[in-house]
């Protein structure tokens, strides 16, 4: 059983976002990078499956060499091997094409990733990879259990949950509570240093989509405080000023 987990390398959730070069480049000054929170759930579930049934877990990132500490962290959490496709992740189609190429060559039984990345928030890479590989794709998956080659899943839908079944191999975009985030321990950190981290060249792929510039939202105006014993005033403001009632 081989599992591929796709990891995005994204700014910590508390980061202030800013841009340089005339709003064309993300400003990394002072920004901490982490494994995407949803990808972290996918990884945690993969490690649980490994511990339960002896699967091999590979982690994959499409990125330049500054993402290697993030991949090492995934190794410290328990992945057996890391693969980095040496390219800037310019758009979803490009990233998905790289994942599909690695997945095809590696013959994986299960391809796990996050339901969405927290930098581009596209929520599409799992669908793209599924279609590129002609495999089923399911997202957002909040429960994943294996019974031999049959998987039992729960998927979140608006206002509820859906339970489904599908045979391996397939692609899943994961979210909580599929597993609890894992924190690397000392032994994991030590062993991660010697685990293989392969660097491979990208395949060419052009989705015809080009990011032209970034923009920050306008700053928020000051808050209007209302006394707790004067809720009528709040209702009045919501009616006449905000006009939302």
């Amino acid at each position: 059983m081989k599992i591929l987990v796709c990891i995005s390398h994204v700014p910590d959730t508390t980061s202030r976002i800013s841009f340089t070069d005339n709003n064309t480049k993300f400003d990394t000054t002072g920004v901490q990078f982490i494994i995407g929170p949803y990808d972290d759930y996918a990884l945690a579930r993969a490690i649980e499956l490994k511990e339960g049934s002896g699967a091999t877990v590979h982690v994959l990132n499409v990125g330049l060499n500054d993402t290697e500490p993030t991949l090492r962290k995934a190794l410290a959490i328990g992945a057996d091997e890391a693969i980095r496709v040496n390219a800037e992740p310019t758009d979803s189609f490009f990233v998905a094409s790289q994942i599909a190429a690695v997945a095809k060559a590696g013959g994986y039984d299960l391809i796990l990733m996050g339901r969405e990345s927290i930098d581009y928030n596209s929520g599409v890479v799992h669908g793209l990879v599924g279609e590129l590989l002609s495999l089923p794709s399911v997202s957002p998956v909040m429960k994943l259990d294996l019974d031999g080659r049959r998987a039992k899943l729960a998927r979140e839908i608006e206002g509820g949950k859906e339970y489904l079944e599908v045979d391996l191999p397939f692609v899943a975009g994961c979210q909580e509570p599929i597993a609890e985030w894992k924190i690397p321990n000392m032994r994991g950190i030590m062993s991660a240093r010697t685990k293989p981290l392969k660097v491979v060249d990208p395949v060419s792929a052009d989705g015809g989509v080009k990011l032209t510039r970034f923009e920050l939202p306008p700053p928020k105006g000051a808050v209007k405080m209302i006394a707790a014993d004067n809720v009528g005033e709040l209702v009045n403001l919501l009616k006449t000023e905000a006009k939302v009632l």
Binding site: I118, N121, V209, K210, T212, F214, E215, L216, P217
Partner: peptide
């Protein structure tokens, strides 16, 4: 909308 609502990106579809 990107960065979980903290920014926007303009994207050209060719």
């Amino acid at each position: 909308s990107i960065y979980s609502g903290k920014a926007f990106a303009y994207v050209e579809l060719k």
